[in-house]
């Protein structure tokens, strides 16, 4: 149902920030959560992003795309800040299946670009051209990040 509503909104474009919220909020929190490993921070990022979209809503032709880019940018900013602090401890995920726990650990080992590209590809189901737009880099670079990220994941997960 939510997927249908999302398609519908995408076709017409959200008329209000509330439409956009209903269409995108949960998906954006899931995406941000998978990138930053933390629910409270994921929600912070997404809510701040919605506030930013609201500020520019009238001038945006594709608020949904702008929202996704903003969320990913903010996630990347947080990941960079964590890297600087070099002490981030991912939160425990006792309820996950073992294979997902393993994936979680290995995702944390990928560099930021690889991680974002792989998550957008496999969780967000975005095409390379869409990821390129979100990450503000050429599609070929995105493919390279996905390929390298996958190689690491495959090596670590299939050991």
């Amino acid at each position: 149902m939510e997927a249908m509503r999302r398609v519908s909104v995408k076709q017409r474009g959200p008329q209000t920030i509330e439409d956009l919220f209903h269409a995108e909020y949960n998906g954006m929190v899931r995406l941000a959560y998978t990138l930053v490993n933390n629910n409270a921070e994921a929600e912070e990022i997404v809510q701040d992003s919605f506030a930013e979209v609201h500020r520019r809503f009238d001038e945006l032709r594709q608020p949904g795309a702008y929202l996704r880019t903003t969320v990913v940018l903010r996630c990347r900013s947080l990941l960079r800040r964590r890297r600087v602090m070099e002490r981030h401890a991912p939160e425990p995920l006792e309820q996950l299946p073992a294979s997902a726990c393993e994936l979680w650990d290995v995702l944390n080992k990928l560099d930021e670009d690889q991680r974002v590209a792989v998550v957008l590809r496999y969780l967000g189901q975005y095409r390379a051209s869409e990821i390129a737009e979100i990450m503000d880099m050429p599609a070929a670079t995105v493919r390279s990040h996905v390929r390298r990220g996958l190689a690491i994941l495959r090596k670590e997960l299939e050991q």
Binding site: A32, T34, N39, L93, A100, L103, Y122, L123
Partner: peptide, 12 residues
């Protein structure tokens, strides 16, 4: 990958 990533996202 897709399935496990969904599992992770589901814990959000």
């Amino acid at each position: 990958l897709e399935q496990d990533m969904q599992h992770i996202a589901d814990t959000a």
